[in-house]
Design a protein around this nucleic acid. Structure first.
Lengths: 211, 211
DNA sequence: GAAAAACATGAATAGTGATTCATAATTCAT
DNA sequence: ATGAATTATGAATCACTATTCATGTTTTTC
């Protein structure tokens, strides 16, 4: 019965040796508690300073419990990166969904990004740190975003909604702006209201520096 | 012209307990070898994967020799971050020094940055990782850049060379573009020639997306 | 050309923290 | 109600690596 055959049940799990999935509500709650604690602790202290002990302490469970749901420290980390990607894509597409005007979509996408980042600063830092802890997850995260962004820009240019120009480089440049402004508030603690930052940046994105 | 006159000849010791400074040419060479090896190894493997042993092996010295010149693993790291800051400021001010046109200076600054980053990819990654390994050094690095950038933009706006607008947010946004494009090539291995990337980005910076 | 200073060595130390595991408690299925 | 499955515990293990240090070598000094 419990032979570990093909688990092609309901989880389209991509990864190889993932910690056991919880089978009861109790287990589900514990798993979530650990995941939330990991987000908080790793986001605050960084991957290497955050010990399994500090995570389980924060979660209110014993150290060994961690390994019931995750097979390693790296695994929770990766899961958090993937989670961030999912949430962010959702939030942004939600915010820009029905927008006809590409330039306005640009503004709302930026606002949604900065708002989300401000609401989950630890998760944001985790994605940044993924560059060093889990390069593959990091690259996947950015490639996915960049590709979507690139397409949007290419279509907008095609449709004559924006000036033509290399959509690939532009996508990276615009993601760079969003990222830098997120860092400006999360890492450097700037307190300028998001709406103000968004308007200033949007003005730059749309009309540039030229007088 | 090295009229910059930036640092004093040789600072005795900026930090608290720094490893002993070499007093002979031999010592100086060894110190440099270790610093270069650290740049290479840490930049490639990341701070935590890079062991002192792997650094000294790369440098061709014994493990204990490391501690003659550096008091800890963190210390080499910090020194590399500071070094990157110095070099980059030098390279950029060199490239934009005599430029009258602010918008052209923007282009050349970006080109200088990307060229430098491409020539020292490991050093670039180290600065990124500093956010997690040595947050103080990281913040100092960016604050310094941001402040210079902000001033330049504010003066240009004052002089009517560019459109008025919040120089602070703009500085961060523009630094974000540079950084993202650096990462695009170093981390994601894009092969678009620098000059092309620079022109595309510069076009965006100067005239924006609007048709 | 000696003693001193500076430099170099690499094996030993020592602290850390991820992971395991034997055991126990709780919940589920019938 | 009861055996099976699942979940939880936390002390012990175990590998890893930064740092130290006693000793040896090279360079400088006079």
């Amino acid at each position: 019965m419990s032979e570990t055959g093909t688990p092609a049940k309901d989880q389209p799990d991509r990864d190889a040796q993932t910690g056991r999935e919880p089978k009861t509500a109790r287990g589900e709650a514990t798993r979530r508690a650990i995941l939330g604690a990991a987000e908080k602790v790793i986001g605050r202290q960084g991957f290497n300073e955050a010990s399994i002990g500090s995570i389980t302490r924060e979660a209110g469970v014993a150290q060994g419990t961690f390994y019931i749901y995750f097979s390693s420290k790296d695994e929770v980390f990766s899961e958090l990166v993937v989670e961030m990607g999912r949430m962010l894509r959702h939030v942004i597409s939600e915010a820009t969904g029905g927008m006809a005007d590409r330039l306005e979509a640009e503004r709302e996408g930026l606002r949604a990004f900065l708002t989300f980042v401000a609401s989950r600063p630890e998760l944001y830092r985790i994605v940044q740190e993924a560059q060093f802890v889990d390069p593959d997850a990091y690259r996947a995260y950015f490639r996915t975003f960049a590709e979507g962004y690139r397409q949007g820009l290419a279509e907008a240019a095609e449709a004559g909604a924006i000036r033509p120009g290399n959509a690939d480089v532009r996508a990276w440049a615009l993601m760079g702006i969003a990222r830098a402004l997120g860092e400006y508030s999360v890492v450097f603690g700037d307190t300028t209201p998001i709406d103000e930052v968004v308007d200033i940046a949007h003005d730059l994105i749309v009309d540039g520096l030229r007088k």
